[in-house]
Amino acid sequence: MTNRKNLSSLKISIIGLGLIGGSIAKSIKQNFPSIEISAFDIPEVFEKALSEGVINSALSEIEMTADADIIFLALPTNLSLKALSTLAPALKESTILTDVSGVKSVFHQRWDEVKQKGIFIGGHPMTGKENGGYANSDQLLFENAVYILTRKEKTSNIDILISLLESLGARIIFLTPEEHDRVVASVSHLPQLIAVSLINSLPEEQTIHLAAGGFRDITRIASSAFNIWEPVIQNNKIEILNALERFEHQIKTIKTAIINDDVKALQEAFENAAAVRDEIPKNSKGFIRQLYDLLVYVNDEPGVLAKLTNALFEEGINIKDIELLKIREGTGGTFRLSFEYPNEKTRAALVIIKLGYKITSSS
């Protein structure tokens, strides 16, 4: 396997500095400051990345990435496909081209269709956040995250890509493109559509104000942008439809059991689901990270929220979400403060208690 010294001399190009591309750049720079990173994006994005020292140079055209050792395609799916077609004939024989999209078969098909040089390895980091863009990119995004690589046949000379990704904290898994698309249709694409459907199936608008934490958590990904998902759905249509059929069957089974007062069938469904869910690895990230919540009771007085947020800011603690859950005018209310990491939640709790506020719950 490639050593760190060899990695330090790499030339990396990243096409698209959004959530994933920006996080790749930040993580590489954090781990290997000497690696030369060039990037293609709109001026306001690459200027920000340049000013932060995340990239070394900005590229005005995609073709300018062709002499890099490794190129990451990190644009939305359809634009990454277009960039693949543009770059494939211009690559060096030794250049590794990889993408980060949520579908894989279509990329391998396109690679086979175009006149190409270099090496193509499909990539899909199984991690993410609710909100995209460079502003939300994170150097720790890949820490302990599953990172799927796809190839149609045994490919040589990719140890350097594997070593680079593992140095970012990722856990590498190899699948065929077809296996990838079948798996993610069930564990990523279907949950996205279910979250959207749950929100859209609410019987009336005021119902949302009664939704508790559980509903909020399982529908968190419903906030995802459609322009990101549209090409994913289009390019994995068959596998998504298969996943939807399996889900429809489960819904019909539960509906029938309720109609027939079949308590045994319902119990079996619940117990089977619990058993299977317990097998999901607890130490790896998913597409949307779990947030860690504190419920804080405060008195109804001016400036309370500002006092809380300023104190946390001064300690370098980032609040990912704030929600006012309950309030009684003249008495007080409860805020839900959400944090990205467990240690941030723990540190925040100490700051809040020191301020004299009461933490009523922690999750």
Rank of each mutant, 00 (worst) to 15 (best):
T309V: 06
E323V: 04
K255F: 05
Y297H: 14
K264A: 12
D321L: 07
F335L: 05
E329M: 10
L325W: 12
P302Y: 01
Y297W: 14
K252P: 08
G330R: 07
G303R: 07
R328D: 12
N310D: 10
D278C: 00
G333R: 00
T253Y: 14
T309D: 00
I288P: 06
G303T: 09
I317W: 01
F339L: 07
T256P: 00
I317V: 01
L312M: 11
D321W: 04
Y341D: 13
D261F: 02
L295P: 08
P281N: 05
I254N: 09
G303E: 12
K307H: 05
V298R: 03
E301N: 11
I259D: 12
G333D: 03
A275S: 14
L295F: 14
I317L: 07
N318F: 04
A269C: 09
V296W: 05
L295S: 11
L312G: 04
I259W: 02
G333N: 04
D321R: 08
V263P: 04
I251M: 12
A274D: 13
N299C: 00
G316S: 10
F287Q: 13
N299R: 09
L305E: 07
I319H: 06
K255C: 01
P302F: 02
N310M: 04
D293S: 15
N310Q: 10
T256L: 10
G286R: 06
L266I: 12
G286I: 05
